[in-house]
Amino acid sequence: MLEIKNLHVSIEEKKIIKGLDLSINKGEVHALMGPNGSGKSTLSYVLSGKDKYEINDGTIDYNGKNLLELDVDERANEGLFLAFQYPMEIPGVQTSFFLKTAINSKRKYLGQSEMDALEFAKLMKSKAEELNISTEMLKRDLNVNYSGGEKKKQEILQMSMLSPKMAILDETDSGLDIDALRIVSEGVNKLRNSENSFLVITHYQRLLNYIKPDFVHIIADGKIVKSGDYSLALELEEKGYEEISQTA
């Protein structure tokens, strides 16, 4: 699915990622954990194609394609999804209209006809119910005056409607109370299957109680310093980043 080799990234001359390797196969859930400033969010932006980052070295293969050559929207339409840490507000654009536009952009890219209005309404309703999102909220402007938890739920709703192949969750757990965390995690778990993959970026082990990863990686100073299975997350919780990084 995704193969990152020797990735070096800088922003305004400052090196952020310094030789990162990561390989994610179909059907796998990987967790990426690390302290602030370790390069977690940078990686999510580089994968999704945000343009202020400079790739100094390395390759990223995504399903046989050179990911770095694709535009942001091409990556998205090829099934790469980023659940934003800070979802953007778009005033004047109704949430349901945004969802429809996103779905139809993807269908257009894939050479399919637009989704029928009724089919869309049904899909949106069922997915929104799963996430405990009210229809009233879908009528509001996208993310405008949403609470932190509502914004994150909205990200997961978009994800479940677009059913990506490769989903990156950038600190989706931050700002969520325990109930919202459970709902969001259930939403993610429902999507998990043998054909798609997830990269879950988080500070805390707490989220991983709900979304059980197959692999856990610890990132420090722009590199993966330790990889393991779920038990690594528990070990991290106990010892802290500093100790784990040192023993690596």
Binding site: S48, G49, K50, D51, D71, V72, D73, R75, A76, N77, F81, L82, F84, P87, M88, E89, I90, P91, G92, V93, F98, T101, A102, S105, K106, Y109, D141, Q158, L162
Partner: peptide, 28 residues
Amino acid sequence: NEDQLFYCQQRGLNSEDAVGLIVNGFCK
């Protein structure tokens, strides 16, 4: 806002559709 554009593009809208959407929202 470049971040709004990026957000829309990450959802599959090409840059022109993204501008159209944001500006239409602005004019609503």
